[in-house]
Computed example of a mutant assay.
Amino acid sequence: MVEQSMWMQKVTADPEHSTWYIERFRSMARAGDDLAGEARLVDAMVPRHARILDAGCGPGRVGGLLAEAGHDVVGVDVDPVLIEAAEQDHPGPLWMVGDLAELDLPNRGITEPFDAIVCAGNVMTFLAPTTRGAVLKRLRAHLAPGGRVAIGFGAGRGYEFTDFFEDAAAAELEPDLLLSTWDLRPFADDSSFLVALLRGR
């Protein structure tokens, strides 16, 4: 059995955590905050009508915007409360409950690989540490030839960037472009955030 993710440990400790998270982003959207940075970057990476996997989609903020831009989006998250919110707030994409460490979409009727995979919102740091490498391998397995994976997370959250790069290499993913923000600022050794655009070897 796969170790429970850090996210689901938080939910177990506080059953209202998911609801708080959903309302936090709904409130930010109502206030007019810019919540589209990740989606803008991914939209620029792909052709029109691309197939995109939103891995760790949460309440659908990124995948919903990509669907509005005309892409074919599938979102997967381990938390059923977040998936329910995604279905309510962003109808259109296919939202699915699932553990990224065991991701096997062909067994769920989704056979075509993805032109791009986005994993935003510090998802990598919310995974169980023992599953991070497995998740990257599962993402690689769902990537179309020539496709890319966009992964973003912050420093100081229990997953060193150097360890991430090692895990990505083991999953046969290599850096195409490294940034320090979703708005295209260059990555440096002292960056506090990483946006890694990876391609399959």
Results as ranks from 00 to 15, higher is better:
Ala170Trp: 03
Leu94Ala: 07
Pro113Val: 07
Val123Arg: 09
Glu102Lys: 11
Gly146Pro: 09
Pro113Ile: 07
Leu173Cys: 10
Leu136Lys: 02
Ile151Ala: 08
Gly152Gln: 05
Val149Ala: 12
Glu166Ser: 11
Ala155Cys: 05
Pro129Lys: 11
Met124Pro: 08
Pro113Tyr: 08
Thr111Leu: 15
Asp176Leu: 13
Val135His: 05
Val118Lys: 01
Pro113Lys: 06
Ala169Ile: 09
Gly154Thr: 09
Ala134Gln: 12
Phe153Ala: 00
Asp115His: 14
Phe161Cys: 03
Phe126Tyr: 14
Thr125Glu: 01
Ala188Leu: 10
Asn122Ile: 09
Leu103Pro: 08
Leu143Asp: 05
Asp163Phe: 05
Ile110Phe: 13
Glu172Leu: 12
Ile151Met: 05
Asp176Gln: 09
Leu136Gly: 03
Asp176Thr: 08
Gly146Thr: 07
Gly133Tyr: 12
Ala128Asn: 12
Ala170Arg: 10
Asp104Cys: 15
Phe165Met: 14
Ala144Arg: 08
Thr162Lys: 13
Thr111Phe: 14
Ala128Glu: 11
Leu177Pro: 03
Leu94Arg: 12
Met124Trp: 11
Leu179Glu: 04
Gly152Asn: 01
Thr181Arg: 02
Asp115Met: 11
Ala168Lys: 02
Ile110Asp: 10
Ala170Lys: 09
Ala170Asp: 10
Thr131Leu: 15
His142Gly: 09
Ile151Trp: 03
Leu127His: 15
Gly109Trp: 15
Pro175Gln: 06
Glu172Ile: 06
Phe165Leu: 13
Glu166Ile: 06
His142Pro: 09
Leu143His: 05
Trp95His: 00
Pro186Gln: 03
Ala188Thr: 14
Arg148Leu: 09
Arg138Phe: 11
Phe153Val: 00
Gly98Ile: 14
Leu184Thr: 08
Ser180Glu: 02
Gly147Met: 06
Val118Tyr: 00
Phe161Leu: 04
Phe126Trp: 06
Leu103Ile: 10
Ile110Arg: 12
Ile151His: 00
Asn122His: 10
Thr130His: 11
Ala101Met: 12
Trp182Ser: 00
Ser180Tyr: 04
Ile117Ser: 04
Asn122Tyr: 11
Glu102Arg: 12
Ala144Asp: 06
Gly109Cys: 14
Ala168Ile: 02
Ala150Asn: 06
Arg140Ile: 02
Gly109His: 14
Arg108Phe: 13
Gly147Tyr: 08
Leu179Asp: 03
Thr131Trp: 10
Arg132Glu: 11
